[in-house]
């Protein structure tokens, strides 16, 4: 069933009953509002407040002005973490987007395989990042892993022990984990493109490639933006996978922002600076999702390549 599919009318309608009834209805939102405020909104402001304090995670919290910010902003670790975060974000976007679009288009058109493929395809979506990281860690072992198994010498690399290879591997594993999810999104979107558009294109003599670039891609524009936003924001908060797979190593080659925050706070007991890093994390996330939204909002003329 695609029962959720009909695009809901936005809440702009003001005809809805108001007045006395609103009061009773507000009560219904209170349980959700209460717990959401306590464990999401308060922490959001809390992290900002904590970034102006000194705290080791156990003792008392002392206000210390801009000390934490000074520490964080003058350390080269922050720039490095930001760089690695953006590198992994960019590379995994570059791998995931074309692959998910093509797979989504294919799956949307081929009903025959879909039932069978769908079962197997989406298994990576179900696994915890911890399980995925542990599996790949053993599978990538230079002596007993994939290299010796396939007999292909070039696969016997120290995948997680070399800085460049480790970043590449991480991008691969992230893609392995999330391509199914994005494929699913694109598949749904492709299926909602009106068939008549393709029929018209066929009459005009447009081939398959031409159809893909002049109908499918432009029609997927908003989906590409949604999916990209999820990828970008998701890769900002990539923590479980990296923590278990490389713990930021080798050296600090895969120490992304979220990991830098965790290590600073819970590893070195510097909760003030860790909170400052967390604030930066929130700001970068907001900035990027606003940027992507802008990109989507600029006219509905179809750009040839989507984003």
């Amino acid at each position: 069933m695609t029962t959720l599919a009909p695009p809901a009318a936005r809440i702009t309608e003001t005809t809805a009953p108001s007045g006395g009834r609103g009061g009773a209805l507000i009560w219904l939102t209170l349980p959700a509002l209460l717990i959401f405020t306590a464990f999401a909104i308060v922490p959001l402001f809390g992290v900002l407040a904590l970034s102006f304090t000194t705290w080791n995670g156990l003792g008392t919290i002392h206000p210390s002005g801009l000390d934490s910010w000074n520490t964080v902003l003058t350390e080269p670790g922050l720039l490095h973490a930001l760089g690695i975060t953006f590198l992994i974000m960019g590379l995994s976007w570059l791998v995931q987007t074309p692959a998910s679009v093509l797979l989504g288009v294919f799956l949307a058109a081929h009903f025959r395989y879909r039932g069978f493929l769908a079962v197997l395809y989406f298994i990576p979506l179900l696994l915890s990042s911890a399980a995925i990281a542990i599996t790949y860690k053993s599978l990538l072992d230079p002596n007993f892993g994939i290299g010796s198994g396939t007999g292909l010498g070039f696969l016997s690399q120290d995948w997680l022990g070399d800085s460049t290879l480790a970043v590449g591997m991480l991008v691969f594993i992230v893609s392995w984990q999330y391509i199914p999810f994005h494929t699913l999104i694109y598949q749904g979107a492709v299926r909602s493109i009106p068939k008549t558009m393709y029929e018209a294109a066929l009459i005009d003599g447009a081939g398959r490639v031409r159809q893909f670039f002049s109908i499918t891609l432009p029609q997927l524009k908003y989906t590409i933006i949604t999916s990209s936003t999820l990828m970008v924001v998701g890769s900002l908060t990539l923590f479980d996978l990296i923590y278990v797979l490389t713990a930021g190593g080798p050296g600090d080659a895969t120490r992304v922002l979220a990991l830098d925050m965790y290590e600073t706070g819970f590893g070195k007991s510097l909760m003030g600076p860790a909170s400052a890093i967390a604030v930066i994390l929130v700001l970068v996330g907001l900035l990027l999702s606003q940027l992507l939204r802008r990109l989507g909002g600029r006219g509905d003329e179809s750009q040839q390549e989507g984003v």
Partner: peptide, 12 residues
Amino acid sequence: GLAIPLQAVVIP
């Protein structure tokens, strides 16, 4: 709340 990443608020 959709924009608040869990990882960023674990300290508070």
